[in-house]
Amino acid sequence: MQPTLRVMASLLVLLTVGGCRREPDAGAAPKAALPEVAPNALRSLQDFAAIESPAERSKALFLEASRVLLHPRCANCHPSGDVPLQGMDGQPHYPPVVRGPEDKGAVGLECTSCHQDRNLAHARVPGAPNWHLAPKEMAWVGKSPRHICEQMKDPARNGGKTLAQIVEHNAHDELVAWGWKPGADRVPAPGTQEQFGAIIAAWVETGAECPNEEARP
């Protein structure tokens, strides 16, 4: 066998037996792995401390927040159409209703015709103060976490709110709070409103960065 052919044969054996080994990039920082949590729980802020880059930590925090934002208890009131959704599978509201001119139902069939400022246990009708649909520009159903993130930062699509007001809204608004106390046999949003508000606040404090388009919680 010619020397060149012997060298090629030796290389082929090495590749077949050992495979190609790529040396790690010395300049690349390893990504911190977040702990697994139950579907009904949220990670603590301490879990994100291992992410050294504030920008990457901010993105991870918003992905965690999106587990609440995209949960049916929240997303059902943020539809892209004119009909509110209900149930864990996002079925159209029954009986049939529409958002109306002010997102509070059609004239004569406003949301508050049935929904009071609290849950009605015997009738199984959910309720909270100021019950209404989110405006269409705040639609979340079918949107990626990145889309929702950019939307939440945009005063033209978030009701004219500053980031500080976004934090306050998510941490203390009574209608938002309903997501964790939905009544009847409805599955609440993950974690608690206190935890969720703290995550949103930490997201803002780390620069309110948005995750990549393909990123999912």
Rank of each mutant, 00 (worst) to 15 (best):
R67P: 01
R67I: 00
R67T: 02
R67M: 02
V68I: 08
V68M: 03
V68G: 06
L69S: 04
L69Y: 07
L70N: 07
L70Q: 14
H71N: 10
P72W: 01
P72H: 08
R73Y: 04
C74Y: 06
C74L: 10
N76L: 06
N76Q: 10
C77W: 00
C77S: 09
C77V: 00
C77L: 07
G81Y: 01
V83P: 10
P84W: 06
L85S: 03
L85V: 00
Q86T: 04
Q86E: 13
Q86P: 02
G87V: 03
G87S: 11
M88T: 10
D89F: 14
D89R: 12
D89H: 13
Q91D: 09
P92H: 05
H93G: 08
H93T: 03
P96V: 14
P96D: 09
V98I: 03
R99E: 02
P101V: 12
E102T: 15
A106R: 02
L109F: 11
E110N: 09
E110D: 10
T112P: 01
T112V: 12
S113Q: 11
C114A: 07
C114R: 06
H115P: 09
H115K: 04
H115Y: 06
H115F: 07
D117R: 10
N119M: 12
L120Q: 15
A121D: 04
A121H: 08
A121R: 08
H122K: 12
H122R: 11
H122W: 05
A123P: 04
V125Y: 00
G127D: 05
P129A: 08
N130Y: 01
W131A: 15
W131N: 12
H132Y: 03
L133C: 06
L133P: 00
P135K: 03
K136T: 07
K136N: 05
M138R: 07
M138W: 04
A139C: 15
P145G: 02
R146Q: 15
R146W: 00
H147W: 13
I148N: 06
E150W: 01
Q151V: 05
M152D: 03
K153Y: 05
D154R: 09
D154V: 09
P155R: 07
P155S: 10
A156E: 15
G159T: 10
G159A: 10
G160F: 08
K161W: 02
K161V: 11
L163Q: 05
L163N: 03
L163K: 02
A164D: 15
Q165E: 15
Q165I: 05
Q165F: 00
Q165Y: 00
V167S: 11
V167C: 12
V167K: 13
E168R: 11
H169V: 07
H169L: 12
H172W: 04
H172N: 10
H172E: 12
D173C: 09
L175P: 01
L175H: 15
L175V: 07
W178M: 06
G179T: 11
G179S: 15
W180S: 08
K181P: 07
A184F: 14
A184H: 09
V187S: 07
V187D: 06
P188I: 03
A189R: 08
